[in-house]
Design a protein around this nucleic acid. Structure first.
Length: 270
DNA sequence: CCCTCGCCCTGCTGGC
DNA sequence: TGCCAGCAGGGCGAGG
């Protein structure tokens, strides 16, 4: 599933084909994902030049010389197909560049989104206004988490999925980071000690950094823009490993929190 | 304000 | 072989 490392990998892959290029053709095969596409999407992108690309939380950003940014979210199953040899029924949006490259935004489960936002107002745009700090930036510190968790009785696992506390973490990397930091996922967030949070921050950064370096994780329907698979899934220590032996020898456990699977080790996480 | 839950969507998997 | 329930889960709104 596309979490921060997968979006980062996607943006880096797309940049090779889009940065500095003019978009010469825009085709919309289906006018909505989880929300309708902007009505002026085709008109606004056709003929625009891509001036740069970026990422905020799990959103990819395509900046244009029309002072607009196309903001895309990959949802659960979204991916960009580069130079697809054959069309796919889930290629909802197709871009062609002046250099002749074809890029298709494909999303079978249609949990993703596409928006056009004035570039100057990105930070205050609806979905971005309340986002917490980027986990790989300077804003994620043990003190920040301590402040955000103060007085909260909700489990730390669920708090870390809250994008207003930290932006960009999803189920996989939260499970892995809590394992690396040795913190029980069901522990009340407000009761996690500062020393534990001081282990958690570097654990989050390490697991994200290693995943980006490996090209992201992959579960059946995610691929990098160039079609290759990410390798980080092989490095998961608890996620998706219910019943298998943890590195300590104890079995990896699974339970449901907030409707989502949590994987952890009772012996390693206290 | 805090917290939990259910819904959106489709494709794959496992059980019978 | 076919059918169907269960599962994957980010974001968001409803309700306690």
């Amino acid at each position: 599933m596309p979490e921060l490392p997968e979006v980062e990998t996607t943006v880096r892959g797309l940049a090779r084909f889009l940065e500095g290029e003019r978009i010469t053709r825009v085709a919309v095969n289906r006018p909505d994902l989880r929300r309708p596409f902007p009505l002026d999407l085709v008109q606004s992108l056709t003929g625009a030049r891509v001036t740069g690309m970026g990422r905020r939380a799990k959103y990819g950003l395509i900046h244009t010389d029309r002072e607009q940014t196309m903001v895309f979210h990959l949802g659960m199953s979204g991916r960009w197909r580069i130079e697809p040899e054959t069309p796919d029924k889930h290629d909802h949006l197709v871009l062609e560049t002046g250099a002749g490259h074809v890029l298709a935004l494909n999303d079978a489960r249609r949990f993703g989104s596409v928006d056009l936002v004035p570039t100057a107002g990105l930070d205050s745009w609806g979905a971005f206004a309340a986002l917490g700090p980027e986990p790989l930036g300077d804003g994620l510190t043990p003190r920040h988490l301590q402040g955000a968790f103060a007085g909260r009785i909700a489990p730390i696992k669920q708090m870390l999925l809250d994008q207003t506390i930290v932006a960009g973490l999803g189920n996989i990397y939260v499970c892995e980071a809590l394992f690396r930091a040795g913190i029980r996922p069901d522990k009340a967030a407000g009761l996690v000690t500062l020393p534990a949070l001081s282990r958690l921050v570097p654990a989050i950064q390490a697991v994200l950094g290693e995943s980006i370096a490996a090209g992201g994780s992959t579960i059946r329907d995610y691929a990098q823009p160039n079609g290759e698979l990410g390798y980080f899934a092989a490095s998961w220590q608890v996620y998706g490993r219910e019943g298998e032996a943890c590195s300590c020898g104890a079995p990896v456990l699974r339970f449901v929190q907030g409707g989502r699977s949590t994987f952890w080790c009772r012996k390693c996480q206290k």
